[in-house]
């Protein structure tokens, strides 16, 4: 029995070892993203990403958060959002503050985290994608 468990352990180790190079980066990103979420976003969007009715929108299940327009998400986090806009058909009265102090890496991590938490299953966001979005947003502004 002990032997069997040992075998299983070895196999698992090899398996993990094979995945390590790619997976580790991702897991690291998600851990860092979670930390940023907890200190900067949780207060409004809540631990379960469910938001607060009429005040702060849910990130869990959000079409935009799970969507392809990464540049817009980057812009919301960097510049804030305080407009009367429908989010999945509902309106929210609070203001999302700008967070200019977050680095491109911070934004990539927190976006990766919110796109892969709760029921969300979207692609991770890379540093290159965020940098691209920041350049794009800047030129759009001009």
């Amino acid at each position: 029995m002990g032997n069997k468990r040992g075998n299983f352990f070895t196999i698992t180790c090899i398996f993990i070892g094979m995945m390590l190079s790619t997976q580790m980066v991702n897991a690291q990103n998600l851990i860092k993203g979670k930390k940023i979420f907890e200190t900067r976003c949780l207060v409004c969007h809540q631990a379960d990403g469910g938001g607060v009715p009429n005040m702060n929108p849910p990130l869990d299940g959000s079409t935009a958060v799970n969507g392809k327009d990464i540049a817009r998400m980057v812009k919301i986090i960097k510049n804030g959002l305080d407009e009367r806009v429908a989010i999945d058909g509902m309106y929210y009265n609070n203001a999302m503050i700008a967070m200019p102090d977050l680095t491109a890496e911070n934004i990539a991590d927190v976006l990766s985290y919110i796109r892969n938490s709760w029921s969300n299953k979207a692609g991770l966001v890379s540093l290159a994608q965020v940098n691209g979005a920041l350049v794009k947003n800047k030129s759009n502004k001009k």
Partner: peptide, 10 residues
């Protein structure tokens, strides 16, 4: 209640 949106009625 930990997450406000989980409250059934407010």
């Amino acid at each position: 209640v930990t997450n406000t949106s989980k409250a059934k009625a407010r």
